[in-house]
Nucleic acid binder design. Sequence first.
RNA 1: GCCGGAGUGGCGGAAUGGCAGACGCGGCCGACUUAAACUCGGCUGCCCGCGAGGGCGUGCGGGUUCGAAUCCCGCCUUCGGCACCA
Length: 855
Amino acid sequence: MTQTQEPKERTRIERYDPAAIEPRWQARWEELGLHKTDLQNARDRYYLLTMYPYPSGDIHIGHWYIKTPTDAIARFQRMHGKNVFLPIGFDAFGLPAENAAIRQKINPREWTMSNVANMRRQLRQMGATFDWDAEVVTCDPEYYRWNQWFFLKFLEAGLAYRQKSAVDWCPNDGTLAREQVEGAERRCWRCGAKVEKRELDQWYLRVTKYADELLDFSEIQFPDPVRIMQTNWIGRSEGGEIVFEAAPSADGSRPGGEEIRVFTTRPDTLFGATFMVLAPEHPLVAELTAPERRAEVAAYVREAQDATEIERLSTEREKTGVAIGADAINPVNGERIPIFVADYVLAGYGTGAIMAVPAHDERDFEFAQRFGLPVRQVVAPAGAPVSRDAAMSQAYVAHSDDEVLINSGEFTGLPADEGGRAIVGWLEAQGKGKPAVTYRLRDWLISRQRYWGTPIPVIHCPTHGIVPVPEKDLPVLLPDTVDYAGVGVNPLTRDEQFLNVPCPIDGEPARRETDTMDTFIDSSWYWYRYLSPRKQDGPIDPELVEAWTPVEQYTGGAEHAVMHLLYAREFTKMLRDLGLVQQNEPWKRVFNQGQILGADGERMSKSRGNVQDPDELVRQYGADTVRLFLMFMGPWDQGGPWSPTGIGGVHRFLNRVWALTLDPHAREPGDPDAGTLPEGQDETAARAALRAATHRTLRDVTADYEAFHFNTMVAKLMELSNTLFRYRGTSVAGGPEWDEAVRLLLLMLAPAAPHITEELWARRLAARGEAWSSIHRESWPEVDEAAARESTREVPVQVNGKVRDRVTVPADADAAAIEAAVLASPRIQQLLAGRTPDRIIHAGGGKLVNLVVRG
RNA sequence: GCCGGAGUGGCGGAAUGGCAGACGCGGCCGACUUAAACUCGGCUGCCCGCGAGGGCGUGCGGGUUCGAAUCCCGCCUUCGGCACCA
């Protein structure tokens, strides 16, 4: 096809100016109520939840990374006829507000609420369809009063209780969070004082009650890593609880007989127990320690308090411990074994005491080596049931089906598993043991010695002890004026107005609880509150909760894989047991995004100074480009260091979509082929090719949206726009296939880049004299499979696994036809040089052919 | 340390048992322009070769397979979490 016309100068079309169109459409959408959800109509409901932000002050690019693809999902689902509910709120209690208050002498509420106001404004710039009518701010008494109400219900149901627990304590600043304890020296971040451990009475929620149920993921779709991490976090182990007794002391001063319970996953190794270890915090340590050992043991126990749990559990760190100068009696054989105290045993796990079997446990082995303790093998492979006591250079921990007990008295010779059960059975008959299950999961410590949180609604009465605040007196308000007095200690503890309160029972003077709740309480039910944020007579609206939850899809950062995502499941089960909700799980599906790090590869935070502000990028390129770039950067679940490199390419793409839609006939002076169809295509072929490209793109893009593969979704739309650019200015441009392609391109792009597509859609309609309606109210288009099909395809041909040629065959060619085409290829004939392939492999239904030639 | 993820051109990444490097950035060349920018077109993993073509190549070392970025075993590096940051 020859080009007869001179290429004319590019038509002057109006420039793509996001700053001019974006605010206009955002205002229009608000008028239209595009973001509003009719909650009374739960037909085709789609509750889309995104983790509410902490109001740190500014929205940064990381918030956009989480929120804008979520908005694209919302818009995509609306185009599928769903009634989408996409609420937003603020996780407004927590440490940073207090830090700001202490440092800058600002009221935490003022600091928080001014940040909220700023972030509301910034969130609106995304062009996201958040339903602001549903907004929840957790530091609002109308929200946190219900935390208190739930707490009272938990208390009544026996799900909340009080117990002593150690905190990191600074003599000047009180309880410290982990991040406030600095360095190996463990010093206070504010005053530099040495941090101690202090035992405080604190509030717990009895969530271990749900441990087994939490291991059942059948009603919640988690990404595999999250499911695995939660499973490991809960850490169910089966085994036995075995009762050892303290032996009479050597000097005869103590008769012995104190019970020392141990938990073991390996009761089969009981005959190999050569010593016993108590956690430094174990209550029997003080009781059993021999007088001459007391000084050393006390010193060790003090030292152990300085180590973090992570350090204590490290398998790399050299084992430490001291003998307490007392023995225990192994119930299975009456042997006396020495008792040690060592920090690799934790008070909070199992019974806080272990029987040590160095032959079959790595940590015990290491400890035995260090202290010259005997190692006795009691389990061996069935084929070689001989003791290797002297020869063992490491613990034999392998636990297969094919092992037998040795050196185990009457149990010798039994298969290990069976032997373990037999030993527990025998002990049970003696009243010295029983089968047991232990979990790594601990009850939820909700007490915080802080001001900026939900006050725990109880009163301490000298006569009646702990008295719940009567429901009618809720909320227990945080005092508005707060004096930090320049220290980190919870100011509630010196606020006499807050503290002094009459006992609800007898009216006598009593004192309020000053601990506040963990902010993970706030985030454990906020999606229920979104459904009725201003409800006065209860925390949630049971009918709406029933109609709209479990949440269809929850999106948020992968850093919450265990804690928040587990606490909220626990909370839901507690609410269910109180009869408040009818569901086992809060959400049906969860997707975890990766995290956007600062340009330095570190977590974005104000203190590091690596926060990327999106405002500047929005000014330069517009919200659509920023949204699309964040989706295009890489897989959504991956995240990575922030870099704006490449954002220009995305902006160029939008400019090309603009030009294609408004000016299909333009010919680029820089393109030597401008206005001509691709070689080998007549007009009919070109029209079919364009249509095939359009519908293949639609098919793939639809699948990508559904799988949240936004990066490849954008890539495929870029490809389609490149194809359209190739046909721009040709005889095909502006024709029905072209028109369909542009229409579908805009529809496919609409969820991701809502403003530019709305603008172009409006102009298209106007150009055709049709009445305006929003592109975001259009239906998602249907794929025409017949059009997407191609008539021929290329089959790569390998010889011994290396691609050497490609043959083109009809799309419906069968294996025999492909084989014939392959063997007819001159290049393949030349490579075969007369040899016959030993095997011909047709892979993936004719996707590829591999000729295997030996010799 | 323990649990989980990731490692592919100069860069972000695509391909999850079948053509490695889609798409984009950057770079080079060209068109347009008085010029530059913008815009448009072409090329662009590395090495050898004028070319046709050949060799190498997905963190490292092994293995399974006709065929491995993808599965298995053993490492290394890095990121997230480890219960009071949210």
